[in-house]
């Protein structure tokens, strides 16, 4: 199945976050450093604000590998709760059994 638009958007966000990570970290270091002068820190903060939406790691959200759903993700398997159930019942997830007692 082709990835949905939301998954594509998330892929874009992830790529952007990776590309801008080092520059953002450098500005963060200056902006949050209390030993530097307030002017320098303020400039660094203004530079940080110029980064776009798809450069922040917080924009990335884990989505289901199979269905692309954004909610109810079991992160160990990167699956939504329903796809997790389907796969587990099919026996495709090693070590996952249906509970019975």
């Amino acid at each position: 199945m082709a990835p949905s638009a939301r998954v594509l958007r998330d892929m874009k966000a992830r790529k952007g976050a990776q590309a801008n990570e080092i520059a953002r970290r450098a500005y963060l270091f200056v902006a949050r450093n209390e030993t530097l002068s307030p002017q320098v820190r303020h400039h660094a903060q203004l530079q940080l604000n110029t980064f776009g939406r798809y450069t922040r790691p917080a924009t990335c959200s884990n989505r289901c590998h199979v269905s692309g759903k954004g909610r109810g993700i079991i992160s160990e398997f990167a699956l939504s709760r329903f796809q997790f159930r389907v796969k587990a019942l099919r026996g495709e997830l090693p070590g996952v059994n249906k509970a019975s007692w």
Binding site: D10, R25, V30
Partner: peptide, 25 residues
């Protein structure tokens, strides 16, 4: 106890794991 911002330099880079989240299609 001033904040030196060292934690932003010390933290691991998250880019590689962010990009590698979805399997290759």
């Amino acid at each position: 106890s001033l904040r030196t911002g060292a934690k932003y330099l010390r933290a691991r880079l998250r880019g590689p794991s962010l990009v590698g989240y979805y399997p290759e299609r």
